[in-house]
């Protein structure tokens, strides 16, 4: 059964079962909301002209940012993954990657107190196209359940499976709070802007809050499809975005299943 509180929300903006499962395994989901014409560029120009970072007050400085948060394509992801009572937390931050700035090493935010549930995550809004030379954010899918002090990541540079977020203006990338992330160097002459928002859950799920179709859970294991799977059970079982070893992969499977059961509202 789907959450009846979503009845009035356009279902095309809610995530599918497979998309939710892929967020559990890969830790990110990207949307390109069709925002009002000129909105992205006007936000980017305002950011270009700012000389101090207002921290959490960035939305007071640029109130148009609320149009991003209010777009149905953004709300649909938040409802799907955090429930209709999701919270836009007060913490948000403007990250400006200046021309000539070097890469930022891999890190997890905050301290090593990880959570296997999806109770909070980030939304990264890019008001301007991000090209390879502009210092894109780089994420490492599949690391969101790892409990690794950032100092222990200092000897990693390039990792197979890393994803540079080279995106179109207006893109919002939702990333698991605990995912390893970094930035590449900005070799261009353009400031690369990103506004980070933090979202949270206010209540545990008792049922799916996305566009759930019960039959999608009935697909049997397909040992041939493996990481090309498009259904929940096979995604949760076989996705291995970094190609980690068997011991880690088996642990990941157990954690993913607990996370999925909590989202379904069926956790013990």
């Amino acid at each position: 059964m789907n959450d009846s509180r979503n009845a009035d929300f356009p279902p095309e903006h809610l995530l599918s079962d497979a998309e939710v499962a892929r967020f559990v395994t890969h830790g990110y989901h990207v949307v390109e909301p069709p925002l009002a014409a000129g909105l992205n560029e006007s936000i980017a120009i305002k950011l270009d002209g700012m000389t101090t970072n207002p921290g959490d007050a960035i939305t007071d400085e640029i109130p148009e940012l609320s149009q991003v948060l209010d777009h149905s394509a953004v709300k649909g992801v938040l409802i799907s993954l955090l429930g209709p009572g999701y919270e836009v937390k007060g913490h948000r931050h403007w990250h400006c990657k200046e021309p000539g700035s070097t890469h930022m090493q891999w890190h997890q935010d905050s301290t090593n107190n990880r959570d296997i549930s999806i109770n909070r995550f980030l939304g990264l809004y890019y008001p301007r196209d991000v090209t390879a030379d502009m210092g894109p954010t780089v994420i490492l899918p599949g690391t969101q359940f790892r409990n690794a002090p950032t100092d222990r990541m200092a000897t990693y540079t390039n990792v197979k499976g890393q994803v540079p977020l080279m995106v179109k203006a207006g893109t919002v990338a939702f990333t698991h709070y605990d995912m390893w992330h970094a930035t590449a160097a900005n070799h261009s002459a353009v400031k690369r802007h990103m506004i980070k928002f933090l979202f949270g859950r206010t209540e545990d799920n008792t049922q799916p809050t996305w566009h759930h179709q019960p039959e999608s859970l009935e697909v049997p294991h397909d040992w041939n499809a493996r990481d090309k799977a498009e259904d929940v059970n096979n995604i949760l079982s076989f996705a291995n975005p970094l190609g980690v070893g068997q011991s880690d992969h088996y642990k990941e499977r157990g954690i993913r299943r607990q996370c999925w059961d909590q989202l379904m509202g069926t956790a013990q």
Binding site: T102, H103, M104, W106, K160, G161, T183, A184
Partner: peptide, 17 residues
């Protein structure tokens, strides 16, 4: 899965690509 190469040359740095 991952690789970092350090060269003993003044000013050498690594870069996430």
């Amino acid at each position: 899965l991952g690789l970092t190469q350090i060269e003993p040359v003044a000013g050498h740095t690594v870069e996430i690509m």
